[in-house]
Design a protein around this nucleic acid. Sequence first.
DNA 1: GCTTGATCTGAACGCGCGTTCAGGAAATTC
DNA 2: GAATTTCCTGAACGCGCGTTCAGATCAAGC
Lengths: 200, 200
Amino acid sequence: MAKRRGHDAAETDRRMRAAALRLFARHGYAAVSMRRIAAEVGVQAGALYTHTPDKQTLLFSLMAEHLRELLAAVAALPPAQTPDARLDQFVDFHIRFHRARPDAVFIAYMELRNLSPGNFRVIEGLRRDYEAWPEAILRDGRAEGVFVVPDPKIAAIGLIAMLNGINTWYRDSGRLSLGDVVEIHRRMARGIVGAGAAPA
Amino acid sequence: MAKRRGHDAAETDRRMRAAALRLFARHGYAAVSMRRIAAEVGVQAGALYTHTPDKQTLLFSLMAEHLRELLAAVAALPPAQTPDARLDQFVDFHIRFHRARPDAVFIAYMELRNLSPGNFRVIEGLRRDYEAWPEAILRDGRAEGVFVVPDPKIAAIGLIAMLNGINTWYRDSGRLSLGDVVEIHRRMARGIVGAGAAPA
DNA sequence: GCTTGATCTGAACGCGCGTTCAGGAAATTC
DNA sequence: GAATTTCCTGAACGCGCGTTCAGATCAAGC
């Protein structure tokens, strides 16, 4: 537990990933060089290769980490009973989880085309695993007769697309609080699944 | 009207823009070189600079052209009377217009960060002009008492986000026809605005 | 058929890219 | 306190980048 003076693998690793996340989100994978990431970390470019085999793997691991955290978090939600309650819970969870990680979300959606084919398949699989959660809620709600959803898969994807849009415009300093935004989208989500809006 | 043999400005111009549109959409602005665009056109890289002052302006003009076409098209829609009919019409229009131009749509949403600040402001303005169309429909519907929309601006943005998601998964060879997709999203759009779903 | 003007070629400019690697420095192990 | 291990530096590799420009080519105008 001696004090380290700059040669701490775990710390450099953390810094590298944080810098890459921010820079990839801000400027795009192709536009960010390893030298620039290294400069943010405070090392020379070559030192990064102690912590990642190459730039492509760095991108992939950032995306995979984000999606695995997302899946773990959604799986850890406390059980809710009715489809309505589960939908409300999902909307709240999705908005808040994604709002807390704008850079990772941005990368996970925008940099798919910069993944190698094999890495792309892995990420796509994780994304589909996540989409299965709202889809199951919609399917169950339809089976119980409380939702009217012609196509649960498309409705789930559409719901996620709508919720993801929030990250492009929401600002903490804006007109609406995050709680307002959640409430508005809960209502719209209930509308999408034909659950009938709550009384005004 | 003599037959040209390779030195036709208009033709080269058209080819350059078509190649840039496709390559930017496929690989991203930063990852596509002027040499690669030139190779698709069948000229040397230097020749492109007869047709665009630089790469940045080429990207901007592709985005601006797309958005101006979009605005012209939405303005040319035949008038519809009720808010319900206008919403149905908008959903149908948006889906079909965007489906017909996947590359331009992709670029207009993904390459915003590669625009210079001045160009960015122009494109953002055009996008807001478009968002004003569905927002007006929602606002009018609420004024007439047929829509229940707490926040028309957010609902309009959410609606567009949901509809834009289609382009990421829809394939002509898929399970659903484009007509099916339109119908499903018309229903979900009516749900978002609290218009009550049509009978199953 | 010569001149003009538009269009393209081909080479060049300086620069930054991802990645590698020999060697040095510091912490850890014995 | 010597040996080992871990992490980093600094230089280098070949390559492709956006852009420029002098000169070639060719259709159009007179």
